[in-house]
Design a protein around this nucleic acid. Structure first.
Lengths: 190, 190, 190, 190
DNA sequence: AATGAATGAGCATTCATTCAT
DNA sequence: CATGAATGAATGCTCATTCAT
């Protein structure tokens, strides 16, 4: 499920790694990827050396943050899809993915800028999510909840776009809800 | 209605300034704001000194790029709104603003990170656009083209979100068009 | 009486810091404050990064150099004043301060140009020295070694001036000594 | 429109040159030699190009400022020496040279840092002044106003030092006068 | 001749990464 | 293993000087 078989990792090392990931997630999301590694290390209560022992590169840290996020999304999506009727599942997952994606774009781009096969470790969770989303979409289209002409790519684009729209809004729930209403209405078969 | 009385600016200086803006727009949009000033200058065929003569700060360059974009959007929106019936005008402007906004977010954020009254020069065009959008929205709601419960803030958020969705997609027109269809359908009164 | 509780500072870090201060003192004194930081770092056998780790700003380095000088002067003055009779003490301290002040003006000015509360860290040692000098002056005036109409400000101005006179001269001792004779003679009560 | 002569142009150029020298003197004295050439030009009401037409180098401008100062000192010294009795002349010239030297050190050093035979154009006026000072010193020593063991070099060093002492002081006349008293008393034979 | 735009070497400073402690 | 000092390439910006207008 999660990782495969790395060294058992001593208890404190594991704790450090987790703390670093937490802090990095928070910091990258709220202040962007430009924050110095040293500051991330300090916020996590460790030295830079420790950070670089766990993540050989800043980019690797970025990647690890994304992987964890994607895995989280994948797991939750899975669970949700298992627990709900197809129509319900679609909107529930849509909301879930959107909410969890907010702030992701910022460093998805940073990762992409690094070039080649960075995606290596992202590919797994990404495909997992996409597969799940494809199933959801197909189910929703079969049951007539979603217009049949919508492809997977557009579905995903809409997820990203909806997330972006929410970022633009403040924290009050009504406007956010209205965005969802517009999108869900628009998704219904004519 | 744009600017009033800047320096006359020698012919070659004006050309350099324009080239710098063009190059910066292109480069910031495609590769992000991290691109070195020196490279922008070189791409524009001038020395760094020239860049800094025209824009005293990298941030000032960023700002100038945004201002030009916003002014362009404002002008085009104005023209479009004048030439079309309210219903038509709404969708036409929506499409226009979305297409012209693609890639803008990236450095809007960079600018925002700079702090205080950066917005000074952006405020004018921004308010102009918002006013126009507010009128468009009101008109479309009056003629029954758009659901009446949608506020200006949500409208703008949807513009941003739709732009983001398009960024996610490739250049083929059909998927892009489908995004617009979903949003426009969703915007219609129940 | 010097510092109280700075970080323990690792052995090599302390050595680097000291070397940087030594080199900077030498270089600022002989070649002025315009010398590039990079060169100072290289002369001290460290990278620029190390220099900036110890002194976050070139100006901070300047300040640290001055502080060390002033503290040195303060300490030596103190010792001298404790070990000598009032009359002796005055001339001895005068000579001492003058000799140690040579070359100081150059970057005192550079520091002053930086603005507001630069003096923060200089104020302590400066006031210490001034207090000591005030006592010396008072003592010498009480014992009739120095004309009673001389204020502290003029005393200090004379110290600076005598230092400047010595700078003008070569290293041969006789002319330098004659400068002292003129000043000391001039300082005696009519 | 010209026709007859190049005189008007020369007058113009001469005025520019004079203005530049005035502004440069003021600016170098009060704010140091680090002030950008462009600012000097602007303050003088001309473009940078004009500045560099008159003075091919910033250093050349510095030199010209110094030359003018030295020539002024030389001329005034000459006049003073001719108009006064030897004893009077000495102190009068001493005061004069000191007052006119204030602020000179700052860029004398900058010039010296440039290296080679920069002094070329300074040598003339410098020697002129030194000759005059030598005569003054000799006269004062002959008439018993000044201790006979003082050499020319020490005399000059004292001039520089006294200037430095005055720089340290504020503008109130009494403390400044006291400095002169100390020096003059010190200069008297035993 | 005057102007000021253009140039680019030079400088202070930052930050990802390495390595001695 | 953790630490944080050291490193140095890279970046934004300045300013003396040149050159087209």
């Amino acid at each position: 499920m999660s990782g495969a078989s790395e060294r058992p990792l001593r208890a404190d090392a594991a704790r450090n790694r987790a703390r670093l990931l937490d802090v990095a997630t928070e910091v990258f999301t709220t202040r962007g990827v430009g924050v110095p590694t040293e500051e991330i290390a300090r916020s996590a209560g460790v030295g830079v050396g420790t950070l670089f022992r766990h993540f050989p590169t800043k980019e690797a840290l970025l990647e690890a943050v994304m992987v964890r996020r994607l895995e989280d999304i994948a797991a939750r999506t899975e669970r949700l899809a298992a627990d709900a009727a197809p129509g319900e599942a679609f909107t529930a997952c849509f909301r879930l993915v959107v909410e969890l994606s907010v702030g992701k774009n910022e460093f998805a781009r940073a990762l992409a800028a690094a070039g080649v096969d960075v995606h290596a470790s992202l590919r797994g969770p990404t495909e997992q999510i996409q597969t799940r989303l494809a199933e959801l979409l197909a189910g929703a289209q079969r049951t007539g909840t979603v217009r049949p002409d919508l492809g997977l790519a557009e579905f995903i684009a809409l997820l990203a776009g909806t997330g972006r729209a929410l970022e633009q809004l403040g924290p009050e729930p009504e406007p956010r809800e209205r965005i969802f209403q517009v999108v869900f209405d628009g998704l219904r078969p004519r």
